[in-house]
Design a binder for these strands. Sequence first.
DNA 1: CGTTGTGAACTCTTTCACAGCC
DNA 2: GGCTGTGAAAGAGTTCACAACG
Lengths: 273, 273
Amino acid sequence: MATGRTHRPATRSRGIPEATVARLPLYLRALTALSERSVPTVSSEELAAAAGVNSAKLRKDFSYLGSYGTRGVGYDVEYLVYQISRELGLTQDWPVVIVGIGNLGAALANYGGFASRGFRVAALIDADPAMAGRPVAGMPVQHTDDLERIIQADRVSIGVIATPAGAAQQVCDRLVAAGVTSILNFAPTVLSVPDGVDVRKVDLSIELQILAFHEQRKAGEEPGGVGAARTADAAPAAGSGAAAQAAAPPAPHAAEDTLRKGPDGDMPAVMPA
Amino acid sequence: MATGRTHRPATRSRGIPEATVARLPLYLRALTALSERSVPTVSSEELAAAAGVNSAKLRKDFSYLGSYGTRGVGYDVEYLVYQISRELGLTQDWPVVIVGIGNLGAALANYGGFASRGFRVAALIDADPAMAGRPVAGMPVQHTDDLERIIQADRVSIGVIATPAGAAQQVCDRLVAAGVTSILNFAPTVLSVPDGVDVRKVDLSIELQILAFHEQRKAGEEPGGVGAARTADAAPAAGSGAAAQAAAPPAPHAAEDTLRKGPDGDMPAVMPA
DNA sequence: CGTTGTGAACTCTTTCACAGCC
DNA sequence: GGCTGTGAAAGAGTTCACAACG
């Protein structure tokens, strides 16, 4: 029960669905690009294409914000940029601290996409005394000892954790205790936080694993592929002696005799070894 | 129409729901940790806590894989690690190339989480001739000119794009032409790819923007907050002279008189300036 | 017992399709 | 005529709650 929540559970904050909120930054990016090219108006179809979604979804999304378009014409680019920015809270300044200035932390510190939205890197913090004072992205790295002071001095409410997994929970606790209420976590750990604190996580290896899953399905007959020659979903539930797992690992407690009823299960139609 | 798809649209590949696939890596991580501590079995409740989800969801997820648990006991840790790894395709070796060796690319190259799963960094590629040959993460950076050769020589099917936004689509096209069918995109652009190619994207600033949205809602009365003193959802739809947007930007085409019917709209109950 | 596996209910999200308006 | 805004339908995903089973 004391485990880190990641979203906010039910409470679709103020009527805008989470799924929509997650797409607003996408629209904003596309709109910003149009704005830079001085395009005055855009249709849902065009904007949707630029953002990589379909137009019905986009219109539905915008309908939660209000009626900001003009029938027969489209949306006023500048106006929409403003409305979405406001909705996302980007019209105000968000000081952010980055904790853990390794490769990733440095990359984040240098990332232009923050500053261009309402985010301002207030401080870079690292536990390594050797890092202290060293400039990264034109900014001196500060020591973890000063974490609380920095958070409070600058009224920082958003923290980015880019430390190794082992340090993440501890850093998280200190950030929260010092007043941070939103955390972006790059460490591969589940953080537990008190109610009222939001955590979002970005896990690089998870994304790759999801790709690998789909990749495996595409490559029906790659070298060494376990599940070669899948037969769609023909057999109702893999009949005969199931426990035949190739060079398989630890058998389950109930050993060789148990029939594992995996949907298409362990047995490739043709088994390599 | 020619815009990059990001998931695979409908086709819940081989019966396992996308949402479940996206959580398998989480379970795998938790299980790996248990395995290292030589824990033999685990209940859905415990494992769910470790993975940061609830136990009903976890059981449902596992039910798509098969019946791998024992009632009254729980799941065999080692066995589950194997089953999930296999399902995700991590029992085979996935060579990966990283294109764009800036701060982020270097961070990715150094990231241990790849190697520990089935991923092997086959090459680091950058367009800057000055980078060529320089070692990053114990590996010489290679020039973009060799991209096609590298992909083909190593039969790479997964590419990671960590270039600036401007170069991303071009790099993507070359990767795809050379045979890559899964792309993890860190550049803040919508990539367009042919059918059959999967793209997942990670956008650092999007995550922050989502946090800012929720943060804005929490901080009812922060300094300068536009939406201070929200009254839940009292007023049916903001009555009087709507167009009062603080120091607001470009009015829409239909100017000051239009009543924008945004759900709670532009007017703070008390307006700062 | 305790814990899994899963139908059934529910909630959230997407898509359709068209009325309403410019 | 063209395009938005939105009800209504369809589809995914989550949660409930309990029968089944070791």
